[in-house]
Design a protein around this nucleic acid. Sequence first.
RNA 1: GCUGGCGUAGCUCAGUCGGCAGAGCGCGGGAUUUGUAAUCCCGUGGUCGCGGGUUCAAGUCCCGCCGCCAGCUCCA
Length: 639
Amino acid sequence: MERMLKIKVKGQEIEVPEGTTLKEIFERLNIEGALGGKIGDRILDLQTPLREGGEVKPIFKEDPESLEILRHSLAHIMAQALKEIYGTTKVHLGVGPTTEDGFYYDVEVEGHRITEEDLPKIEEKMREIIKRDYPILRKELQREEAIKLFQDLKEKYKLDIISRIPPDEVISVYEQGDFVDLCKGPHLPSTGKAGAFKLTSISGAYWMGRADQPQLTRIYGMAFWTDKELRQRLRFYEEAKKRDHRKLGRELEFFMIDDTIGAGLVIWLPRGAIYRKILEDYLREIHLERGYQLVYTPHVGKSKLWEISGHLECYKPNMFPAMEMEGEEYYVKPMNCPFHIAVYKSKVRSYKELPVKLAELGTVYRYEMSGVLHGLMRVRGFTQDDAHIICTPEQVNDVIRETLDLALTVLKDFGFDDFKIYISTRPEDAIGSDDQWELSENALRKAVEDLGYSYEIDEGGGAFYGPKIDVKIKDAIGRLWQCSTIQFDFNLPERFDMTYIGPDNQKHRPYMIHRALLGSIERFTGVLLEHYAGLLPVWLSPTQVRIIPIADRHKDYAKKVYEKLTSEGFRVEVDDRDERMNAKIRDAELMKIPYVLVVGDREVEQDTVSVRSKREGNLGSMSVEEFAQMLKLKVERKE
RNA sequence: GCUGGCGUAGCUCAGUCGGCAGAGCGCGGGAUUUGUAAUCCCGUGGUCGCGGGUUCAAGUCCCGCCGCCAGCUCCA
């Protein structure tokens, strides 16, 4: 007897035999224009036979999920185009999934190296295939049939995939014209339904993402339903390019990276250094306010230290190699923890002084493969706003809440208020007791809930030594950046035999929490520059005010204004070059200086300044006092 | 590290078929004294990433290396 499935669509409930497709169901219910449907979190196209019942949400073009279907099909259309151009059995297909704004396909083309120059040709062929409007047909095959089919097509990678498909799972292929591909779907009903696309780039990608496997050519495409959306996305990339912190960093004279000094090693130029000083002063201040103690620790430590900490066992590939001196090996620190632990252990600790919160802007060095280095975002030497909190089990809840609160406060002060919070829980091969994990994971959850934020759980995504919270911030153009991390560590307190004396006069093992708020100062600076497109809030600007005397005779007055503002603690410059006012204004604009004060005959006579704001344009004349007052307010409010 | 692309003045870039290395900005000097995004003139600036090869002749063609960029992998 046929099994019946209960299906619920838009409030209507019907029963259909197993194997019915969404196409049949939508027809029966008079739902028109749907491209597929969502059951649970699976997106199905119209022709996939249903195996399970449940609530079906029809997917129309307007739904974001429909792009998934479009992009899948475009990946196939690209694969077909490649086969038509280079020969059916010469092109070996890898995987062709969808991405955030399009799709890619990993391919190997025998006897031809695909370059960017081939892309227009491939695009053209794709348009042709779309025009031919082939129906896209789903077929389910027996394993043997499938193997035979892909053997004939010389699809070695597809055969590899088939060998990984569990025996009880259906093997499906999609056909369009004479092209056939192993695929779960979902797909459009026909190639003619495809929308706007553009092939964007090529890169290498290992089969199965493993370096010991052959490397295929990955061809990226971007795809949307309409040209307008596609163009919008392309504009987004242009915008991102304009905001590139490497470009801004050079233009604004913030930093440089020099071959002769070393890849991934950042030189902070004077303008960047003054910004960094402001940022560091702010960080130290807020840490002191929140009960942290500041420490300074060395940049290197003997190998014994890293043996105890376990870094030489687990982290060595990421460490700079050892230096030898007086028969001892030293390592440059990749992390600050062992040093902070030494501070903790410098005296016997009573429960009465916990939690101990040790903070340091600690500069660490990590070996990163040359290919991953990227401006300030990914470097080999960087400074963390690092701290370690050592507390009793009873204090864990409060400590986590206050730490998360501090993290979010700091991020908000820099102008970020859109967060995504992730909690990572116990993985398979974890150390520590069930009690420890439970207490800690609950504390993390509770802290986020108490502060009124939502979060996602990365089940099993924690480190072996403890669960963690990660905070990602959303920047001005919607990109997410990981910054804060709050991480339990059940490992190091054991390894270093950290203790405190409890009320029972016995030694107890404390909880230890690593945390960084901005993460790395270098990386955060990169994010900040891109977020603000170089125009930092006034409190962080290297130069807050530039005074422009119109002619030589106004220089003395400019100097007077300069001294007045400087004495009030502002960062001011006078542009006394022998240049025209317009040129000076232009240069100030290009350096993204927030306030320009023009002084000429009128200002000298009336004892005023003419204020031009980078953000708001010409604000007209006001007295120096008025201007200073306004500026002071902006700095205080961190605008 | 791997795949692909790219390396020409401090910066942005042009350089044809192998035939005398260029422009703008910057920098130096001079003139100009200016009202909200580029004043004019003169000058300066190069081991064409590095090393080999082919050639009468290489920025240009070939090989190796280095660096950068986009990805893969990894991550703050």
